[in-house]
Design a protein around this nucleic acid. Sequence first.
DNA 1: GATGAATGAGTGTTCATTCAT
DNA 2: GATGAATGAACACTCATTCAT
Lengths: 203, 203, 203, 203
Amino acid sequence: MKNMNSEFIISSRRKDANKNAAKILEAAKKIFALKGYETTIEEVALEAQVGVGTVYRRFNNKHQLANAVAYEVISEIYEEQEDILKSNQSTVEKFKKAFACYAKITAKYGEIHPMIVDLLVTERGEEEFKASFLTGLKNLYAEIITNGQNENIFRQGDPRLYEIFLQNMINPQMVKKISEIIPLEETPGFLADLALNGLLKKK
Amino acid sequence: MKNMNSEFIISSRRKDANKNAAKILEAAKKIFALKGYETTIEEVALEAQVGVGTVYRRFNNKHQLANAVAYEVISEIYEEQEDILKSNQSTVEKFKKAFACYAKITAKYGEIHPMIVDLLVTERGEEEFKASFLTGLKNLYAEIITNGQNENIFRQGDPRLYEIFLQNMINPQMVKKISEIIPLEETPGFLADLALNGLLKKK
Amino acid sequence: MKNMNSEFIISSRRKDANKNAAKILEAAKKIFALKGYETTIEEVALEAQVGVGTVYRRFNNKHQLANAVAYEVISEIYEEQEDILKSNQSTVEKFKKAFACYAKITAKYGEIHPMIVDLLVTERGEEEFKASFLTGLKNLYAEIITNGQNENIFRQGDPRLYEIFLQNMINPQMVKKISEIIPLEETPGFLADLALNGLLKKK
Amino acid sequence: MKNMNSEFIISSRRKDANKNAAKILEAAKKIFALKGYETTIEEVALEAQVGVGTVYRRFNNKHQLANAVAYEVISEIYEEQEDILKSNQSTVEKFKKAFACYAKITAKYGEIHPMIVDLLVTERGEEEFKASFLTGLKNLYAEIITNGQNENIFRQGDPRLYEIFLQNMINPQMVKKISEIIPLEETPGFLADLALNGLLKKK
DNA sequence: GATGAATGAGTGTTCATTCAT
DNA sequence: GATGAATGAACACTCATTCAT
């Protein structure tokens, strides 16, 4: 999952071109975070201080831009998660931390999280994006789940099912609504606890 | 929640007119199930074999039509759920059955479920719709949760948090993905179990 | 100009039908006075407590209804004017009174006056309506003008030119704006004076 | 009132773009002159040999386009009028010339004149347009009127009343009808004379 | 005859995408 | 390469008119 960006950006030999691509991506992140997929290309271009044509030079179309943004955001938390996973903690601890970390997306990126969910599910999502998501973030969870199962503290069953469950536990809408009742900083912890409990073997 | 139709459809004294309204609603249900809110009024009209103007005669605008569709779908499962709740079963049993029943929406109505979620959250949802949802379906869950808490088998804490959690556990996208791995008929049960486990007190 | 109504209403042998026609006309007068030609047939029907179909049974289309309304309004002041003309007063007096009377339309019928002007000029106006207007109201002015010319107190020239001038002197928009500066009841008098002065021979 | 275009057109640095804006304005002038405000944006686009989107790129909406057209037309005669006013002639002479010049709008721009009147009166008119009209053309008349009053050749009274009167004396419908009887080139003169006479003090 | 439901052409407006400069 | 002007399909919504009941 290194250099994820390059997969979605039409690369260019000229440095300033790539600089432009980064500028656009940054702008898109900002605007998409605010407005989600409803965002206009013109708005992005404006924010990036670039012409619309330039946006299209770097990203074939709106879908691709959205996918790149999604990719960016996911990448951003990837390393942090990886560190947790490689650390020397109990599976339960790892689970809680990884989950909490993942849950931060919503707080940080507002409307991008629902957009990611959407891209993952609809035909708007580039196959390439979906694939890299699957082999990226999802694997982290797969590993935790399998570990937990092997340690016989998690329920048995197809790990993919629990991955889906975990993914759903960070549903942006839920996070948003939960955080209207309890403080935002406690939300990831609360959800992690709930999710973990769901996963744990009954005694 | 009786006579639900009358709340969102501009009713008419004429029988044929109301028949048409039903036809439109049915068509809308079908198309919305397929395409979600992106659906075009023209598509609905076409499916209902009716002019666009006729759609607008019965529903003031697209939002209202969407709300009516959502309302319909929710109503459809409401009574079933109510029966379960009034029945003579353990809280855990009630929970599982009510949940499973609710989870059927997704299987049956595809894109309408996310649409409902959307209407519940954005300003697109008529206040009337939100209110009746709150006093309708949500209360069923609230009751189950409070019961479980009183029986000391569920976790303590603000019941609203667990309501949100339960609502999220029937997220259509999750249901869809789960059912790609295990048979659709087992999906509600699986999710109910997972959700219940999350809710149960740790020993 | 007696029985003007009958010229624009599709007559019916049934009394209640004609009663309906009158009801519609009355309603149309009220609504057109408020909104002008932008008025919707449905609004008129609603005001008349009648179905839209009934409106169309009595008036072939919206234009015709508008023409009938215009005709009505003009008829309403016709007799009053005729009385003035036949009275035993100086031409100047007659002029002032007739003019003031005519100018009342605006005050009384709001948006209908511009509508009349429009009908008189565009192709929306039924030829029949235009013709009867010409042979009706306009003639009153023609007579006054000719009288004034014969008495050698008015300018010479084609009387039709002065008729047009006079008609224009009661332009609803002007009346409206004038009456924002001076009291409405003084407006007709003020305009009459101005118009008369324009017409009088220079010494 | 200099650089009038810039006030209503979204200007652009590109020459060809502004050329297009001019093309659109020209087309709009032509079509509006024919059909008035009823004109369709598509018609304008067609006439300008331009896509509808292009029209909207230059003018935020139909109202704004109409206002721009109105502005254009008024501007067109503004300078000519100003010259007359600054010239060394008697008030009566100035009056006649300025009036005649103003009256040409109708002959030249058909349905645009009523449109201007409409914009001036309804909420469709941009405040900016109304303001610039007030500080532009209207002031010319105000000045003439006040001059005439000071020279004691015009009637006394609120000058605004006479401004309204003068504005109304160039009512496009009247001009049109007058010019059906006498040659178009004599019409402004005839009207000016009539208007002047109305204004002059009685002896 | 009366009704009002149905119709669908028509309108203003938006926005992803293309392409001339 | 960059720009932003141009494009036009698409869409929500309106309303005069028709016609089944």
